[in-house]
Amino acid sequence: MSGNGNAAATAEENSPKMRVIRVGTRKSQLARIQTDSVVATLKASYPGLQFEIIAMSTTGDKILDTALSKIGEKSLFTKELEHALEKNEVDLVVHSLKDLPTVLPPGFTIGAICKRENPHDAVVFHPKFVGKTLETLPEKSVVGTSSLRRAAQLQRKFPHLEFRSIRGNLNTRLRKLDEQQEFSAIILATAGLQRMGWHNRVGQILHPEECMYAVGQGALGVEVRAKDQDILDLVGVLHDPETLLRCIAERAFLRHLEGGCSVPVAVHTAMKDGQLYLTGGVWSLDGSDSIQETMQATIHVPAQHEDGPEDDPQLVGITARNIPRGPQLAAQNLGISLANLLLSKGAKNILDVARQLNDAH
């Protein structure tokens, strides 16, 4: 009898209710805020589980004197976190989706994509230029951005401005803007500013005609071990179906173009009346040469937790077992079709030249 009692006690200790789920994140304040929001949602869904947040620095956090596009290494903000995932030191990792490459290392998958916040870019102005827009900034004003995508589009749109690289986390960039006289304004992701509670610093939100956004911008991705079915089931509740389908289309477009950090590629997606609209573009580094096109596809946005595919093969690095396969494939095909259209119009040449120029500098 006593033996059975011990077995029952052991089973209770090993039951999922007692389990601590370890969540990996970057150390920056924004990353911690984003991770806290994901953990809060998981806690609400699984009140019996405990969650421990483990923060670590990544290569991208450490190399702050070089433009991201020049470092010449993929997975700048993800490699150390993936290493911890691989060694079973954490069970899942919360990322900004735009930091996750469209091809993940073997053994990993994006197990959830959370509801997207505003994906557009924002302009934050130096205190002396508050009330201005990019259009009304004085001639030769210097605007800071760490992104080739932003610089290429904005140089084309605002030729009277000069664009220079600015690195560091959000706090560091804002301090550089406010305390030094080098920059009249800087460009940042609206979602990051909003998550930090800095709505009052948003001086201008850039519309798609001015600057399309990065693939996955404004959404959070939760990376897990691809074979860890328990954790895949656990994080599945975080999937937002519309965000998922938009981001599958965007990531398929980028992957098929073979774009990345070192080339200016941008997108804009919208879901309306059962249609998914995808606009994508590529630019030369100075913005003088560009190709942009829009395509659409009829896609039914499923309700969360309709029964999805059981075999769960990944699409552009994403596993969404609780979302039907048909809409996911339709979104992926839309991204591939748009990429093929741009490639047929000469996108590869623009991107190759951009890559060579970026590598040469």
Rank of each mutant, 00 (worst) to 15 (best):
P208A: 07
R116M: 03
V90K: 01
A320K: 04
T41E: 12
A189S: 08
G131N: 09
V265A: 15
R167V: 08
L81C: 09
L81G: 07
D61G: 03
D240N: 15
Q181F: 10
L245Y: 15
G308M: 03
I166E: 01
S75N: 15
I110G: 00
V143N: 03
Q180V: 09
S337N: 15
D121K: 02
K132W: 12
R149D: 04
E162K: 14
H83I: 08
C114G: 07
R116L: 04
A226Q: 11
G24R: 00
D307S: 08
L334H: 00
K87M: 13
V202C: 12
I291S: 07
G24C: 09
S69H: 12
A320S: 03
T319R: 01
S45C: 15
R26T: 00
M56I: 14
P119M: 02
G221W: 02
P327T: 07
F125L: 11
L30Q: 00
L174F: 14
V103T: 15
K140Y: 09
G197N: 04
R173F: 01
A55S: 12
E210Y: 06
G24D: 00
K70D: 10
P159R: 10
R325I: 15
E162Y: 15
M295F: 07
R32P: 00
T58D: 04
S141E: 08
A303D: 15
N88L: 12
D228K: 03
K132I: 11
L342Y: 13
G280D: 04
E223F: 00
L343H: 13
T319F: 11
L64T: 13
K70Y: 11
D228Q: 15
I231F: 03
L315V: 04
K348G: 14
G260C: 15
L315A: 06
A112V: 06
Q29K: 12
A339E: 02
N171G: 11
E209H: 09
R26L: 01
D359V: 05
L81V: 08
G281D: 00
E139V: 08
E89N: 13
I336W: 14
K43F: 05
G111W: 02
I186L: 09
S69L: 08
G335S: 01
D99P: 05
L220S: 05
L334T: 00
R167D: 05
G274H: 05
I113A: 08
R251A: 01
I33Y: 15
Q314Y: 03
E82V: 06
L351G: 01
I21V: 13
T145I: 04
L174V: 10
K74H: 10
M212C: 03
P313S: 14
L357R: 14
Q153D: 01
E117V: 14
P138T: 11
S57R: 11
I323S: 10
V316M: 01
D273E: 12
H305V: 10
Q229M: 12
K140C: 10
N171Q: 12
G111V: 04
E52Q: 07
A270V: 13
K87F: 09
K140A: 11
E209Y: 14
S57E: 05
L100N: 02
P159E: 08
R325L: 15
V265Q: 02
A151V: 10
K157R: 11
V263E: 12
T243L: 00
K27Y: 08
D359R: 15
A67T: 13
K157Y: 12
E73W: 04
V237F: 07
G60W: 05
R195D: 01
D61V: 01
Q34F: 04
P324R: 13
T102D: 05
Q29M: 13
